[in-house]
């Protein structure tokens, strides 16, 4: 199981859990597993076609999967996956 770090804006969909475990051998499998465990999280991570949304970045370790094998990036048991959403606040 890989460890997935959930950012605070999305924690309301994971019962306030900051890190959760996900099964799968690739990033896409892990994200799908996560969406299965937390259905309300799904629409924030995946579009209607099942692709990872463009305002969400996924990192494996400290690398953006865009510079690895994208959604097909292989993950190991102890891999740390970070979900990083666009946030806009600052002057508020």
């Amino acid at each position: 199981m890989s460890k997935v770090i959930i950012p605070t804006p999305l924690r309301k969909f994971t019962n306030q859990e900051a890190t959760v475990e996900a099964a799968g051998g690739t990033v896409l499998e892990a994200v799908n597993d996560l969406a299965g465990q937390y259905p309300a999280l799904s629409k924030h991570l995946l579009d209607d076609g099942g692709n990872i949304r463009s305002f969400i970045r996924i990192f494996v370790g400290d690398e953006d999967i865009i510079s690895l094998d994208k959604e097909a990036t292989k993950i190991e048991n102890d891999t740390v996956i970070s979900i990083v959403p666009a946030i806009a606040g600052g002057s508020m």
Binding site: P9, K43, H44, R53, S54, F55, R57, P85, A86, I87, A88, G89, G90, M92
Partner: peptide
Amino acid sequence: DLFPEPPPPGLVPSCAEGGVIGVLP
């Protein structure tokens, strides 16, 4: 390069809903 597109409205909470802890900024 990081975020090619913004989230559609509705998938992000508005400022009033969002809030921020005062020390963070």
